[in-house]
Structures are given as structure tokens and as C-alpha cells.
Write a protein that binds this DNA or RNA. Structure first.
Length: 435
RNA sequence: UCCACCAUAGCUCAAUCGGUAGAGCAUCCGGCUGUUAACCGGAGGGUUGUAGGUUCGAGUCCUACUGGUGGAGCCA
């Protein structure tokens, strides 16, 4: 073959003046008859490769001429800095080894496409530049999330995907046949299992897929989404909120440090992100209702805060907002009532700026076994299924708190995406499971 | 589950009051030695989502269905 070293485009700046080999794909070509401009991609970056008729082997020039969109190629050439290139560097081609020239037209064209077409071709759409950058940002968000927990001495506890009839509420789960044991349900949350784990490990987190069978069709919903949940023994609701704002601040800071080129590439204005530093504003549900009424929203105390209301609140602030202590009857059964006001429970939602809505749902959990059983009954849930969950309160119960953070909602906000489906490689929505 | 909108060339979209189906991109042929979603010239490409209906005449109006999109509710 040849003596050139295989290098990745993300490292190309270290190889100026050298002969190197790039293994990748040609995603576009511009030609002027006696000069070809090959736009190459290798999964780590982009480069423009130059093939001149006067200075290149005739066979190589012909090969370059024959390449079509998405041809896979190993290209050998010399690296040169050049401001005329869209990527700052160019490759003067010496040889091209064709792996495959597609025999059919590549479906994704350079012009715009509709969302139906793009989702049907999601397996190919992933190759587009914008998707490349978004997926790299998602990678950084998840990396930062894990880093933060480990820096705070949390232990990763992977919670089960198959669960019995137990969760936040029944009726919105996917079910599958499970041997002779009847139905199993796909996890809507790992929270209850994390509550078990904190009694062994103190502070724990998970990060994995979650499933919701609600027939939601909005830009904020997926049927399968990735959630990070955390649970902390002896944390009050206040401790919980302080922890959440540190987590979000850390993730945003980390993405700005490590993935700013990707944010820039997708046109994300980073100024709003630079303001995301703890502490975040906190307003009680009572205050939120008054604020919304003053702004002309038709709502009264006891109503839930919907999407429009969330935006109405978030536009008042330049950072994520935490709304705390909602009425108990619009929240889950396991939330600890406020000792100072039994009508509300100790909980909080975190609302992202710029209209992105709820990214965290959090609460302090009931730790008294009798009160928990009372609430399970009050919410008409099957007490038998929650036997082990109540058990946690029978043996050395402690006050504790936790939350769930939607990874795709976080990514969508950080990238300022129009729709959450671009924040995950293969979105699952109610009318789409292919590819 | 409910409400609204959309469906015309491979893709993105036009088509006036109901009167012979059109463009850009992609593809193929030709031209061009610095292109930047390259450009210039030429060519091919259509059962207008499906089934009915109204009409002299339907891409256009009506009904049903299918597929999709956005939103409500619900939530992360």
C-alpha cells in the first residue's frame, strides 16, 4: 500500500506538511473541469481535498471525477493550511483508494428536506453535518453528567428496565409478556429502585432509557427517552434544589468548554448559556400562580402549570427557574407533605429558559411507613405491589430526596433545537419505530 | 383520546376564479484550474396518497379512508 499514516481529521492540525491517509466518505464534490474539490468526512471532522489535473496522476484524476455522493474512500495526500478551504485545511491528493461508489443516488440532497422524509431516512440523516454536531454535544452532556456525579462521590446504580406493576402511576406503561409471571412493564422511572439503593450506598444516580406509553405528540415528548435520576439519603428538598442547580451549571459550563465549536457550527448563541450559573431563581407554586395571574393567564390555585405557563414563568428570568411546593393532589403519591402547609408537597420542577419547559422533576420522598401506605391507598394504587417499597421505610427509614432529568430536553435546550427528536440518535415517537 | 393542518417528479415546492402539469436541486450529456448548498448550456423524469362523488371539465370542490405533522391532556 503506502507509507502514509492514517490520521483522523480532528487531529489534522498536528500533521501540516506531512503525507497522511484519510479514511472516510465524500459528502460533496465541486468541480471545474481541470480541478476537483472533494469534500471529505471521517466521523471526527471535515476537510477539502484538492485534485488538480496538471499535478495529479491521470488515473487518480479520473477516479476523483467518478466519485458520487457518499462514496467511501481512503485518500492519501499532503496536508496544507489554506484559508480558501471551508475547514482551514486542505489535502493535496496523491492517491485515492475507492472502497465503494454507490450505484444509486444518495437520498439526502444538499437542499432542504421535510421532516417526514428525514425521519424515514434517519439512518442516513445522521451523516449530515448538523446531526454530527448535535450528537457530539449530546455525548458531551452525558459525559459531563457522569463526571459531575462521580466528582460528588455518587455511585452509579443501574436500575431495571423490566419492572412489575410498580411505578409512579399505572396505565401509561408499555407491557411485554414475561414467561410464566404474566406481564412485565418497561420502566417509566428507576426512582423506586434508587430509593432502595441509597439505604446501602448513600448517594446514587442512574442514566438510562425510560419508556412512556402516553400518546404525546409534541416537540417535547418521546416514547423512549434517556433520563438521569439521582437519589440522596438525608437530603431535604432544599438540599435537593441546591444540588440540581450545581449539576445543571456544571453540565452547561462543561459543554461550553468542550463543545463550543459544535454549538457554533449549529448556530447556537452561547450568550444565554453563559449566564447559566448557580444559584438559580426559586419561586413557590403560590408565587408562580400570582405571577401568572398578573400576566393574564387564566388559572387558579390548584391548577397544574402547563407548557404555556412554564414559558410564561421562564421568560421572566435569564437562568433556569425552580418552582417548588406544588399542591399535593396534582403530584405523585410518594411526595412528602410540607409540615408547614399540608396542602402542598416538598417538590420542585426546574424550567429551562427560552421556552424549553421542564427539564427536571424533583421531590423529597415520604419516609414514614404509615403515611406512605395511606397515600398509596389514597391514590388507588395496589398496596401489594409496593410491599418492598414500603419495606424501605420499615428498616431504618430516613428523610431523602431525588429527581429525574430528561437528557433529550436538556440537549434540545442547550442546542436550541426546534424538536426533541434531533437530540437522540433514533427517536421513538408514537407513529415511528423505523428505522 | 381530542383539535387543527398537510399529501403534486427521487427531494423541496409552484400551478390565479374549476379550463392542456411547472421550477430549483438530484441524475445523465457537454463546458469551466480555487469551488464554498459552485456555476453555465442541454436531456430524461408525473395514474397529482387511495376509493368514491359533483361537474362539459377536478391537482383545485365534497365524503370516507390511509399516511404524516403540530398542539391539548400527561410528563422528563
Amino acid at each position: 500500500m503506502n507509507l502514509s499514516q492514517w490520521v483522523y481529521l480532528e487531529d489534522i492540525s498536528e500533521h501540516v506538511g506531512e503525507d497522511v491517509e484519510i479514511r472516510g466518505w465524500m459528502f460533496n464534490k465541486r468541480s471545474s473541469g481541470k480541478i476537483h474539490f472533494l469534500q471529505l468526512r471521517d466521523g471526527t471532522g471535515f476537510i477539502q481535498a484538492i485534485v488538480e489535473k496538471s499535478s495529479t496522476d491521470e488515473e487518480v484524476f479520473k477516479t476523483a471525477d467518478s466519485l458520487r455522493m457518499e462514496s467511501s474512500v481512503v485518500v492519501e495526500g499532503r496536508v496544507r493550511e489554506d484559508k480558501r478551504s471551508p475547514y482551514g485545511y486542505e489535502l493535496d491528493v496523491k492517491n485515492i483508494e475507492v472502497i465503494q461508489i454507490p450505484s444509486e443516488d444518495y437520498p439526502i440532497s444538499k437542499k432542504e428536506h421535510g421532516i417526514d422524509f428525514l425521519m424515514t431516512n434517519r439512518h442516513l440523516w445522521l451523516r449530515s453535518k448538523r446531526q454530527f454536531h448535535i450528537l457530539r454535544i449530546r455525548d458531551e452532556v452525558i459525559r459531563a453528567t457522569r463526571e459531575f456525579y462521580h466528582s460528588k462521590k455518587f455511585v452509579l446504580v443501574d436500575t431495571p428496565i423490566f419492572t412489575g406493576a410498580i411505578g409512579e402511576s399505572a396505565g401509561e406503561t408499555f407491557s411485554v409478556k414475561y414467561f410464566d409471571l404474566g406481564k412485565a412493564y418497561l420502566a417509566q422511572t428507576g426512582q423506586l429502585y434508587l430509593e432502595a439503593a441509597i439505604m446501602a450506598l448513600g448517594k446514587v444516580f442512574n442514566l438510562g432509557p425510560t419508556f412512556r406509553a402516553e400518546k404525546s405528540k409534541t416537540r417535547r415528548h418521546l416514547t423512549e427517552f434517556w433520563m438521569n435520576e439521582a437519589e440522596m439519603a438525608y437530603y431535604t428538598s432544599d438540599d435537593n434544589m441546591t444540588f440540581q442547580e450545581e449539576l445543571i451549571s456544571y453540565i452547561v459550563k462543561r459543554v461550553l468548554e468542550k463543545a463550543s465549536e459544535h454549538l457554533e457550527a449549529i448556530g447556537r448563541d452561547v450568550k444565554p448559556l453563559e449566564k447559566v450559573k448557580a444559584p438559580f431563581p426559586r419561586i413557590s407554586y403560590d408565587e408562580a400562580v400570582k405571577l401568572l395571574q398578573k400576566k393574564g393567564f387564566d388559572m387558579k390555585w390548584g391548577d397544574d402549570i402547563g407548557g404555556d405557563e412554564e414559558t410564561g414563568i421562564s421568560v421572566e428570568f435569564d437562568r433556569p427557574v425552580m418552582v417548588y411546593n406544588y399542591p399535593g393532589n396534582i403530584k405523585a403519591f410518594y411526595m412528602q407533605p410540607d409540615p408547614n402547609n399540608p396542602k402542598v408537597v416538598l417538590c420542585n420542577d426546574m424550567i429551562a429558559p427560552e421556552g424549553y419547559g421542564e427539564i427536571i422533576g424533583a421531590s423529597q420522598r415520604i419516609h414514614d411507613p404509615d403515611l406512605l401506605i395511606e397515600k398509596i391507598k389514597e391514590f388507588n394504587l395496589p398496596v401489594e405491589s409496593y410491599d418492598w417499597y414500603v419495606d424501605l421505610r420499615r428498616y431504618g427509614t430516613v428523610p431523602h430526596s431525588g429527581f429525574g432529568m430528561g437528557i433529550e430536553r436538556l440537549v434540545a435546550w442547550i442546542c436550541k433545537l426546534d424538536h426533541i427528536r434531533e437530540a437522540i440518535p433514533f427517536a421513538r415517537t408514537i407513529y415511528r419505530i423505523h428505522p
